[in-house]
Every structure is written in C-alpha cells, then in structure tokens.
C-alpha cells in the first residue's frame, strides 16, 4: 500500500511538474531572415549598429523597466553575460520607450553589465517582430534571426546558452 502511495505521488509530480522541468526553450525561426536594421545609442550616447557585430552570435533582448517579467529575467541575463562574455558572443538589451534617466535609476537596483541600448521613441523596435516585452532574439554570425523567445527565460541555463554557442 505504501509503495502504491509513493508511486501515485511520483505520478502526480510528473503530471504537474514535468512540463516545468523543460521550460527553458527558444523557438527556432525557420526562414532565418536578416535582422532588421538597428542603430541605437547606449547609456553613454555611443551609437551601436547591429551590423558591426557580424561574425559573432548576438543575443538581443527588448525590455522595459516597468515590465515585471523583464525585471525577473534581467538578473539571469546578467549571470549569462558573465558566463559568455569571453566566448565571442554579444549580448544587448534594448529598452523600449523610456528615457536615459529612467533606465539609469532602474540600473541602480538591477545592475546590467552588458550593453544597454535606448530606443526611446520605439521606432526601431517597431521594425523588429516584437509583439510583447520581453522578447529576445538570437542572431547568427551573418546577422540572421535564428531563435526567438517571447517572455522571460533563465538565460544562464546552459541548455539555452549551448544553442547560442553552437552558432559560433
């Protein structure tokens, strides 16, 4: 009887939690279109052109300070950056629709060590296939859209990072 209870418990566990165990996934984009143009200033006013990163895989995240899932995933992006920064992979975060002061204040509580770009008017983001925040794309070495993730992820999970590493 005891064994039956234990097996039943295991069944319930699998039923409820098996999907969550594999939750970290990205969607492969089948047609691998070239990424839209992106030329934006960082927090110091230095402009970054996405084309300058050709030859390296790029993780590019669209977010905003008020967005709860963005705030939840940013620390994992920062941890991911610490893992990959010496591996020839680029990581960018594009803040959508906010000014430098807002982002600067936010970063006092949520440190971001990788490059943050500002799309205060939202015009650049509108050219990308972004429907909700956060949305993250992975670009290959040729600047093509290879993966997409809508909603937050635990980006320091190696199951995600290995897919990016494979693009090197």
């Amino acid at each position: 009887m005891k064994l039956l209870f234990m097996k039943s418990g295991l069944l319930i566990f699998f039923t409820l939690f098996a999907p969550a165990l594999n939750a970290e996934q990205m969607t492969p984009l089948p047609d691998n279109k070239p990424a839209p143009a992106l030329l934006l200033p960082d927090m110091d006013g230095v402009k970054h052109d996405i084309r300058d990163y050709r030859g390296r895989p790029v993780i590019i995240n669209f977010w905003a300070t008020w967005c709860p899932p963005c705030r939840r995933e940013l620390p994992s992006m920062n941890r991911a950056w610490k893992k990959i920064k010496d591996e020839g992979i680029v990581m960018l975060a594009v803040d959508v629709g906010e000014d430098e002061d807002t982002v600067f204040t936010f970063m006092a509580d949520y440190p971001i060590d990788f490059t943050v770009l500002l799309d205060s008017s939202g015009e650049i983001t509108a050219r990308w296939p972004v429907v909700g925040l956060p949305t993250t794309f992975v670009l290959d070495r040729e600047g093509r859209l290879v993966y997409q993730a809508i909603g937050g992820r635990e980006w320091d999970n190696d199951s995600l990072l290995d897919k990016v590493r494979a693009l090197k």
Binding site: M26, I150, G151
Partner: peptide
C-alpha cells in the same frame, strides 16, 4: 499573438 512552446506574455 502566437505563442510557441515556452513562450508567455503579460
């Protein structure tokens, strides 16, 4: 909106 496996939105 279309959600692939693992996607979510708020």
């Amino acid at each position: 909106q279309t959600f692939q496996s693992g996607d979510y939105n708020w």
